[in-house]
Structure formats: structure tokens, C-alpha cells
Amino acid sequence: MQHPNAGIQFPAGTVEVNEDFKQAALREAYEETGLDEFITCNYIGKQDINLSGKHVIFQNAKVFSRPDLASFQWVEIRKGITVQEERRQENFVQVSYIEGDKYPEPNYITFQITGWVEDSNLASKVSRHFYHLRSDCKLNEWEQAF
């Protein structure tokens, strides 16, 4: 779809717990386009990506000041965020999340989180499943709700 500010976009997202891939594709397409009646939803294929030195937050993760559950817990990183691995200690990984002022080439860091998260909250491999969805909707422009 042609987004008014971001150009052409492909709907994408994360599979929820107990949701199959096709259901996730249809849900994400609806959430991001507003279309909910598709004529077809055909599976195209899968891409596995190993995240060398990076991780995706698998489930919301509390960030600790030290690799210890009794240490100060000051923030939570939400599911789906990609973080850089800094180092490991036992069942903890020190990670950094850095957000710049613009994408893809930021001039400045506007926000940064560095701390320890439990290893069980991290995924080092991502699987992307692709579907071809077809709708008979006649919309020609992006609809905006005000």
C-alpha cells in the first residue's frame, strides 16, 4: 500500500502466542491496511535469519542494572525490539538498544538503553513467513482516520 508519509509499505508483524502463521498474516494485513476480506491467502515461503551479535526480544524483558534478579530493575524492553549483545554472564545478556533521530542514517542518538536481561527473553534467530494476499477491494488511496 502507498502510505502518505512512508511510501510503499508491506504489512508485516509478529505472530502472537497460539496463533498460526496464516492467521497472523491476515491479522497484520487487516491492522495495517484496514482490508479484511481477502480472495486468496497463499503461502509463498519462509526465510530464516541468524542474528549475528544481535537478538530480538522474544517476550517483554525487564532490564536490570547487573546480571542479578535482585538488582535494580529500571525499564522493560517490549517484545519485537532488536538489541545488540554486549556480553554474557551466566543466564544474563547485557544488551543495548539505541535509537537515532532518523532512519536509516541517524545523526544523533536520541534514546539508549543498556542493561542486563535474562537470556530466556532473547531470540537469536528470526523466521519470516511470506504470504500473497489478494483482495478485490477498489480502494485507490490510503485511508486516514482523523
Rank of each mutant, 00 (worst) to 15 (best):
V83H: 03
N50D: 12
W116I: 07
S71C: 14
R78A: 09
D68P: 06
D68R: 06
P106K: 00
N91F: 08
S65P: 08
Q89Y: 10
F72Q: 11
S65R: 11
A70G: 13
Q94A: 13
Q84P: 00
I113W: 01
V83I: 08
V95P: 06
W116P: 09
T110A: 04
G53A: 07
N91H: 12
S65V: 07
I44K: 14
V95I: 15
I81R: 11
F64P: 03
A70R: 15
K54T: 02
G45L: 07
D48M: 08
Q59H: 10
Q84F: 01
F64K: 07
E105Y: 01
Y108F: 00
D101L: 01
Y103E: 02
P67L: 08
V75Q: 13
I113M: 07
Y43A: 07
I57A: 14
G100M: 00
E105V: 00
Q47L: 14
T82L: 07
E86D: 14
G115A: 12
V56K: 11
P106W: 00
L69K: 15
I57L: 13
V63I: 15
W74D: 11
D48H: 06
N42D: 15
P104F: 01
G115I: 09
I109D: 01
Y43M: 06
Y43C: 03
E86L: 05
W116K: 08
I57E: 15
F92W: 02
H55F: 08
S96P: 05
G100I: 00
I57F: 09
S52D: 13
A70F: 05
Q73A: 15
V93D: 03
N60V: 04
S65L: 10
K79V: 03
P67Q: 07
V56H: 07
K79R: 15
I77A: 08
K46D: 13
I44N: 11
I57P: 12
I81L: 12
H55M: 03
E99M: 05
W116R: 03
D101W: 00
R78Q: 12
F111N: 08
Y103D: 03
D48N: 09
L51E: 11
F64V: 07
D48T: 10
N91K: 15
R78F: 02
Y103V: 00
R87H: 10
Y108W: 00
S71V: 10
Q73L: 05
G53H: 02
N42W: 02
F92H: 03
I109E: 02
A70T: 12
F58T: 07
L51G: 02
Q89F: 08
S96A: 13
N60C: 06
G53C: 08
K62V: 10
N107S: 03
K102Y: 00
I113P: 03
R87P: 09
F92V: 05
K54M: 10
R88M: 14
I113K: 02
E76M: 09
G115L: 12
F92M: 06
L69C: 11
K62R: 15
F64M: 11
P67Y: 02
Q59N: 12
S65T: 14
V95C: 13
P67G: 09
N42Q: 14
P67N: 08
I57C: 11
N50P: 04
Y43K: 13
N50Y: 02
Y43V: 04
G80D: 06
I57R: 14
V95E: 11
Y43N: 12
S96Q: 11
A70E: 15
S71M: 12
L69V: 12
